[in-house]
Nucleic acid binder design. Structure first.
Lengths: 189, 189
DNA sequence: ACCTTAACATAACAGTTGTTATGCTCAACA
DNA sequence: TGTTGAGCATAACAACTGTTATGTTAAGGT
């Protein structure tokens, strides 16, 4: 994972946002980078490898802030914060979610790529489920609920809100997204 | 909207599911149809028009069962049924949702196409919001909640469940999706 | 019998795609 | 000083893209 690879992937990132995944050709990416395709072919075996690299960066950008959460944040609020990093509440997150959605749609009809999504979704789900279990151990959440199911439920909700922000003509105010998320958490705690 | 146009769009539908939107070329669609591309070019001005036609069919297949709901079904159950037609609880719906997701991802970086999605999403949202208002008029739902916001909230949830069924390695049981939806409805009623 | 038109098939078009091979340049090292 | 390799540019490749023009065929109407 060299610096140059990251630069290339970020050029690809921008092309995907502006033109769409399927139109993110090597030449278009190279142009966005301000070079020729030689740079890309030198740093990546082929296009698929580059695309997977970009997808990796999407996952990173979502998982990182989750794992970087201060240990001071505890209880239900911690769970809320973990989920809030997937909410379309600032331009950065909106970008990430757009690229994620582009890749997800791109994976329909591409079984191998869809499996990659499943791997990453499983990671996310496990992280949330684990946190729920921790909260159960602290008697903050009822032991009767199923951590795995609840994690999927919550992730479905934040994913849905991400889509909402793109398909509704205007996204809701950030505070409202957060409020809706809190309502979900309240239903558990 | 001739019969032949529908046949072509359904061939396109199948190619999208099996190969992906971006790989649904005119030649691939014609082959799936068992003809040559002459059929397509004769019945559609260009490819974009065909694609929009397919997108229309996605919306139809979601809105139709919503509007076809028997007037006997009333109250909260009616709202639930309206939303349940977007749940990944049978193969047909799973197909529809996959094509929808493929198109949605395809729309990232294509502003015109994204606006089409927004139009259709607005239709859906209005239908749900209207039903909520009706329930408020019948004193079944608190007048304090915002129909529009609640409609977006509920749609986000069912959309999220649709995504869940694709990115999690195994979809949940149909009854569980329905149960999760019911929980959402309970939080309102 | 003649004309028209719908419904295709076929072919050619210029443009774009990812991949591969080859060549260049310059810094690091022996 | 000579050699090696990384980093990149350039060019050529066959395969594929949507669009358009031009046939062909058969049915319907007059």
């Amino acid at each position: 994972m060299s610096d140059r690879q990251i630069e290339v992937s970020e050029a690809a990132w921008r092309v995907i946002l502006q033109e769409g995944v399927d139109r993110a050709s090597l030449r278009a990416i190279a142009q966005e980078l301000g070079t020729t395709i030689g740079v890309i072919t030198h740093h990546f075996r082929n296009k698929d490898e580059l695309m997977l690299f970009v997808l990796d960066r999407v996952t990173e950008k979502l998982l990182e802030p989750m794992q970087a959460l201060s240990p001071e944040v505890e209880g239900i609020e911690r769970l809320g914060r973990m989920l809030a990093v997937m909410l379309p509440i600032n331009p950065d997150l909106t970008e990430i979610l757009q690229v994620w959605l582009a890749f997800l749609g791109y994976a329909v009809g591409r079984d191998e790529l869809m499996q990659e999504h499943q791997k990453r979704a499983a990671q996310l789900k496990d992280a949330i489920a684990q946190e729920i279990q921790a909260l159960q151990a602290e008697d903050i959440i009822s032991p009767r609920i199923n951590p795995d199911l609840e994690a999927r439920n919550l992730l479905a909700f934040v994913n849905g809100l991400a889509i909402d922000s793109m398909v509704q003509d205007r996204p809701l105010e950030p505070e409202i997204y957060l409020e809706l998320l809190n309502r979900q958490l309240h239903a558990i705690g």
